[in-house]
């Protein structure tokens, strides 16, 4: 009996240590740059496969007004403390300007009134956080495609970088500043907006006032809030830590379609 108990205890201990070693090995694999690169290779496969099966103009599902979330969750920064931003916010963004520059023929500086005159779209869409939850909201904004045409992209432009007012992480080198980027397929998608209204009211501060990006076929971290400047670039290797976005610089996929 006690022999049996000992044996069972020994087996349990052995099983637990094998499992422990196994999990520790997984942590090591995660941290090893070479094996991490192998795991990361699936991202390219996912992006190519989705680009292959998803038509570039295919629309994200839209919802009836009754589906709008009363509890739409603001995530990330909810009240930026950048002094320039705070000053603009306190003036109701009256002198706020959106800068459009980089690889464009005609750099722009647009007020909110200018943006409201541009070709607009209203859509009720689902916002899917990378954490797993979803909220539904109604967005009105300037379509990014016509705005980019107004600035005139140079042939070398391949990505649009969205520079934001919020510092999401305090770092010494400024790489904690939020930013995002899209390729031209998603930048010219009919549902890609620079949204100034949410649920028929001016975009509230927790959700990115005065202007946020909506790129509906990707996850929430792509939907940059507090957008201050659009920059057309040939590549984004020189920006911040070089991966095309705040969360991308912290290990998340640049293509956030899944």
């Amino acid at each position: 009996m006690s022999h049996e108990t000992n044996r069972r205890g020994w087996l349990t201990a052995a099983g637990a240590s094998v499992a422990g070693l196994w999990l520790a090995a997984c942590d090591k694999i995660t941290e090893n740059p070479r094996s991490a690169a192998v795991l990361k290779s699936a991202e390219g496969l996912t992006r190519r496969a989705q680009r292959l099966v998803v038509d570039r103009k295919a629309l994200a599902p839209e919802f009836p007004a009754t589906a709008i979330s009363p509890d739409f969750k603001p995530n990330g920064s909810t009240n930026p403390d950048d002094p320039d931003y705070v000053a603009q916010r306190d003036k109701g963004f009256a002198d706020w300007r959106l800068v459009v520059d980089g690889l464009v023929e005609r750099p722009l500086s647009l007020s909110l009134a200018d943006l409201r005159k541009l070709p607009a779209r209203t859509q009720i869409t689902r916002h899917d956080c990378v954490e797993g939850w979803s909220s539904i909201g109604k967005w009105t904004g300037a379509r990014l495609g016509p705005l980019l045409d107004q600035a005139g992209l140079k042939p070398t432009a391949r990505y649009i970088v969205f520079h934001c007012a919020d510092m999401l992480e305090e770092t010494l080198d400024g790489t904690g500043q939020y930013y995002e980027s899209l390729d031209l397929i998603d930048a010219y998608h009919p549902q890609t907006l620079l949204a100034y209204d949410m649920n028929d009211r001016p975009l509230p501060v927790p959700h990115g006032a005065p202007l946020r990006l909506r790129a509906e076929r990707q996850l929430g971290y792509k939907q940059a809030k507090y957008v201050m400047r659009l920059e057309a670039v040939a590549d984004f290797a020189h920006i911040s830590r070089g991966n095309g976005g705040f969360w991308e610089d912290r290990g998340y996929e640049w293509y956030a379609g899944i």
């Binding site: 795991l39 699936a42 998340y252 899944i258």
Partner: peptide
């Protein structure tokens, strides 16, 4: 708990890497 996740520490980005690699 930690013993039921890969990696053992909380890291969504790495969890997603493992998940999509093995999903393929």
């Amino acid at each position: 708990p930690a013993w039921a996740t890969v990696p053992t520490y909380r890291d969504l980005a790495d969890g997603r890497r493992w998940h999509f690699f093995f999903a393929w």
